[in-house]
Design a protein around this nucleic acid. Structure first.
Lengths: 138, 138
DNA sequence: CACAAATTGTTTGATACTCAAATAATATTT
DNA sequence: AAATATTATTTGAGTATCAAACAATTTGTG
């Protein structure tokens, strides 16, 4: 098997494992993966309009409406009117939503820490650099 | 922001982008992501019992039953009786399922090829090595 | 051997995600 | 002022998912 093929399948394997880990973690918190994803996107930019948030997540506003409904009823986000555009609605993390996001991010960090614990600093530097280049090219 | 944090968020960003890419690619083929995932798992080991396949995918057999129903009606997989255990059922890719899987794998390979095209061979070697170590530690 | 216990796949009932299309309210353009 | 565009919600339909109940078969035990 050639190099690129190996790389390809290692990427797929990592993706699958991360996906499965994510699912397990999130499930234990009484929230779904798309719901957590919403909190994550809001975590990095806040507040956001429904339209922006939907675009950032790659879903339709129709889908987002029900997603935000559920997150709101669980107390993790809140809707606010937009100052200058009355068609728009701003979505924000509540204190509890912030906490949920922060906790998840912490777990993520710890996972990456564990997974790379046997890798030398210089190799990790290269790894990050590759990842950044790939993200840029995506 | 410290190193691990950067690494963590680059991993998340890559994961999101790959997920979105996967979705788009698969959507155009009249098949869903979980359905493609089923073909992928079967692609690397075949035939598999329902139970094995479900475990390999991290879903219940109940979920898998309907998934395989749909794939069967689309002609991508087929069910066969198990020789020695009459409770079990073997699932296999059809010719058309093989083709679908192979095509998807090819696209995946091309994506990885493109994303890493600006990265030197030696760095790609390190990248693969890191990925393999992380998969092992997962 | 015969019956109890475990395994395997399917079915059922419930919840969630997703989209496309229709709708209502508000902005923008002409 | 009226037509067009944008934004969020609602509706209808399909799919994914799980847990629990079920039927068929295999394995284990007395």
């Amino acid at each position: 098997m050639n190099f690129l093929n190996k790389l390809n399948h290692s990427v797929i394997e990592f993706y699958e494992k991360l996906s499965s880990w994510e699912n397990d973690i999130v499930y234990g918190k009484g929230i779904t993966l798309p719901q957590m994803h919403t909190l994550e996107v809001l975590g990095s930019q806040q507040p956001m309009r429904m339209k922006e948030l939907a675009q950032g997540m790659g879903i339709t506003t129709g889908t987002l409406t029900v997603l935000v409904d559920r997150l709101e009823s669980k107390g993790f986000v809140c809707r606010k009117p937009h100052d200058s555009d009355r068609r728009s609605i701003l979505v924000e993390l509540t204190e509890s939503g912030e906490a949920m996001f922060a906790e998840h991010d912490r777990l993520h960090l710890r996972l990456i820490e564990e997974l790379t614990s046997e890798i030398s600093d210089s190799e990790r530097e290269v790894f990050l650099s590759c990842l950044e280049k790939m993200n840029k090219a995506f």
